[in-house]
């Protein structure tokens, strides 16, 4: 295990409760190092997505601290966010959808254009730049969504059950593509999923959450080496990891997976 010098994400005693007394998260402690691939699993309603939104800075914790630092200079990392739905603008072509983050950041058009082309190339959709989202399949829309997240060259990629709505074959292919991109570009990934198998396949580390209140109950290292492929899915090590994660979830008193 190669421990990184400074963690990219540092969460200390973070809690989140709403005005009506609902406690969404309770004393969450988590630190994620550079280039880690962290899988976040737990039953629905355990606050996985909420935790992700806290990390993205879209919400503030009601207690505790959530900080993200990209390097020693102390800058906030460039964040890419992928939602469960593709969340594309239906009125805009694929190119313009992927261009959006750069446009909002005010990048000059010429530079943005080449970056968008690169991002589309990465997800294998360069030929579809002029298509509208409704003309694409579910898997292709998800690829556009990933291209949009990658176009800003993020150091931190946050993914909220991105492949949950896809069929198994498409999901496996996108899993492999994601791992390939990650091994090339080495962003840090926090990947929320309700699938133990997906988490174990992708992650270098899996955090298990329990519900009511949402909290982290286990933090497991998945030490199988990368690159991983279909062989890994059939290996004894993969099965063993899945068993460990499953029992951690069971101990958290949850059968709703």
């Amino acid at each position: 295990m190669n421990v990184q010098a400074a963690p990219l994400i540092e969460i200390r005693d973070a809690a989140l409760s709403y005005g009506n007394g609902t406690v969404a998260l309770e004393s969450v402690n988590l630190s994620v190092g550079q280039h880690e691939f962290l899988g976040l699993v737990g039953p629905s309603g355990c606050g996985k997505s909420t935790l992700l939104r806290l990390i993205a800075g879209l919400m503030a914790p009601s207690a505790g601290r959530v900080s993200t630092v990209s390097d020693r200079s102390g800058d906030a990392p460039e964040i890419g966010f992928v939602f469960q739905e593709p969340t594309l603008m239906p009125w805009a072509r694929v190119f313009d959808n992927v261009h959006l983050p750069l446009r909002l950041k005010g990048l000059p058009v010429a530079e943005a254009r080449s970056r968008v082309e690169q991002a589309l190339e990465m997800v294998g959709l360069a030929d579809f730049r002029r298509a509208y989202p409704r003309e694409l399949s579910g898997g292709m829309k998800m690829r556009v969504s990933i291209a949009r997240a990658l176009v800003t060259r993020p150091t931190l990629l946050l993914m909220d059950e991105p492949f949950a709505a896809l069929d198994d074959m498409t999901r496996h292919r996108l899993n492999d593509d994601l791992l390939k991109l990650w091994s090339e570009q080495r962003w840090t990934v926090v990947f929320v999923t309700h699938s133990i198998y997906e988490a174990v396949y992708l992650s270098s580390r899996v955090a298990v959450m329990a519900a009511s209140p949402g909290r982290i109950v286990a933090d497991l290292h998945i030490d199988s080496p990368y690159p991983r492929d279909q062989e890994y899915r059939l290996s004894a090590a993969y099965g063993a990891h899945c068993r460990v994660v499953t029992s951690a979830l069971a101990q958290a008193g949850t059968s709703d997976v």
Partner: peptide
């Protein structure tokens, strides 16, 4: 306007005018 797209605009630091023109108006 789609809530997730709203979040995306927040994440990328969209100005009020950009949000109105690129998200709310369409």
């Amino acid at each position: 306007a789609d809530r997730n797209l709203q979040d995306l605009f927040t994440l990328y630091g969209a100005t009020r005018w950009q949000r109105l023109r690129l998200l709310l108006a369409p």
